[in-house]
Design a binder for these strands. Structure first.
Lengths: 131, 131, 131, 131
DNA sequence: GTGGTCTAGACCACC
DNA sequence: GTGGTCTAGACCACG
């Protein structure tokens, strides 16, 4: 599957799952009506506890990204793509803002900051869709 | 003082203090031998628990950024400026990398990502050292 | 058929079927000796899983509301009407009591509660046996 | 405290807690800024698992009824009273509607239904704030 | 002491 | 098989 968990990310595991599912839906990798991996399957795959996956999935249902189909599984909800696309920028922007604010506050000169960002951006571009 | 705590940053409060002290030392705002605010004073100022400040100060001593002066308080350690200056970029780069990686992984197009970064960078520049 | 399933009722689907069959028997819509829809037929009609229907029918046999007729299907058992009629009020009263108790406990004023009940009762009357 | 859990209510335990907290806030029994019982305390009192209480409290935070105060506990959020007061009627009405609809559908005559409701309402009134 | 997160494993209803 | 709920108990950060 397309998920990747980093226990040292700082973000809670369930939150990483939530974000990645939203991103997958936003980008069209997961489409409305499509079944997502079952709680147990994803837990096995990521070698984390099923409860952690379940918690992420529960929140995704609260956020109207997933719909439960009794006895069958969870599918991407109608209109989820639009909702997630809007949220994607918001989620990323929020984290980006934090980092830039901290950099600014560290009295890193704007010029240095720009250079740093540019370097990392290029690195990321070169690596492509790493995961 | 020049510290600013955001309880919703995601970063632990004590970690925010640690980073900000290091940044202040790196940028020369705090100089070797200079006394930093007492635990109680900073706690009062930031309206957080003294234990939290104490914990941050403890780690800063472990990191050889601060030195205890018996009966007086904590002062910036010798050579701390150089150590912090080296660490500053590392700390910021690490967080920046996470965010950009997530953005990349979310299949945000490189062009969109660049635009977003540019917009936020400009915003930060305009606002200056507001925080 | 006269059944109506609401997956979001809170009540288990099989339980909704059990109750509705009992109600139908109590009201004389289903009479002793009459054949009820087959598991597959009802499952198709309600677009639910045959296992769920089978489970409901199994319980109805346990409750002596239905009788299996080898090679034919399930028919309404003798004396089922009387048994169901007695149970009908009990089933409804139990649920009603729960709701009113919760309303009372929520410190909704008795006057408000009465108004609410009256409004909903009137609404139900107007709509008739719509469902 | 003012909570009462019935394991046979049909509603999940965590949901009973959520509803009762909302009701308490709506009725002014819990006021903005007031600390609610800690997770462990309420769990002990109701002899249920702390995780169950935590889950209820988490949802109440999602619903902006509670606010976390780091290291201190959970307090009633600002504006929660208004939000809960609006929701209270909605929650009760939803359950009431289900029951009345079922009663109606059971072909209970409207007259009988009215009598039943009236009897139960009076009973509830007599008992007063039972819990 | 507080809540937040995670693991482990159970039972249930439904498909 | 599926998700939903609950229990039990661990560790962490914060006050």
């Amino acid at each position: 599957m397309f998920f990747h968990i980093d226990p040292h990310d700082g973000l809670a595991i369930y939150d990483q799952i939530v974000r990645q599912v939203k991103f997958a839906v936003a980008s069209g990798v997961l489409k409305t009506g499509e079944l997502i991996p079952s709680v147990r399957e994803l837990a096995r795959e990521l070698t984390i506890n099923p409860n952690t996956v379940a918690r992420a999935y529960r929140q995704l249902q609260d956020d109207r990204v997933l719909d439960a189909v009794r006895g069958t599984g969870l599918e991407v909800a109608g209109g989820a793509c639009e909702r997630c696309r809007g949220e994607r920028l918001k989620l990323i922007r929020a984290r980006l803002r934090q980092v830039l604010a901290e950099a600014q506050q560290s009295r890193l000169e704007t010029r240095e900051l720009r250079e740093l960002v540019e370097k990392e951006l290029s690195a990321v571009e070169r690596e492509g869709t790493r995961i």
